[in-house]
């Protein structure tokens, strides 16, 4: 049943999207066609990024479209860039405290 719905979706229009996972020295942009009406989760699965970067855990890594966090069942639209994010390493509060201790002000208003 599930399989047949997927096939029907594929027989309809397909849209072109990008799935991106970025590391400091390696950023991969997957340009993939997905069936219209696919969700972010399906798009990531279809892109094959999980095979190349098995460290991505879709239960842990957050993801979004063009800088805005989205849910797994958000529908993707044509020309969307689905982005898989990594957590911060630094603690923002700690970075601010350190800068204050060193006497450096946070630029442009400071608050993040």
């Amino acid at each position: 049943m599930l399989l047949s719905t997927v096939q029907i979706k594929f027989m309809g229009d397909s849209i072109n999207i990008e799935v991106v996972y970025a590391l400091p020295h390696e950023q991969i942009v997957f340009k993939v066609p997905v069936p219209a009406g696919a969700t972010v989760f399906e798009a990531i699965k279809l892109s094959g990024v999980l095979q190349i970067h098995p460290e991505i855990d879709l239960a842990k890594n957050r993801f979004g479209i063009y800088g805005k966090l989205s849910k797994a069942d958000t529908l993707v639209r044509d020309k969307d860039r689905v982005e898989i994010y990594r957590p911060l390493i630094a603690d923002p509060k700690e970075v601010r405290r350190q800068r204050a201790a060193e006497g450096k002000a946070m630029k442009k208003g400071g608050e993040a």
Binding site: E83, L88, A112
Partner: peptide, 22 residues
């Protein structure tokens, strides 16, 4: 610190990230 300020500045969408994420 994941503040997204650089993302808003970028005119070519070359920065990947979201609020409080790398």
């Amino acid at each position: 610190i994941g503040c997204t300020r650089c993302i808003r500045e970028c005119s070519v969408d070359a920065i990947l990230g979201a609020n409080k994420l790398m």
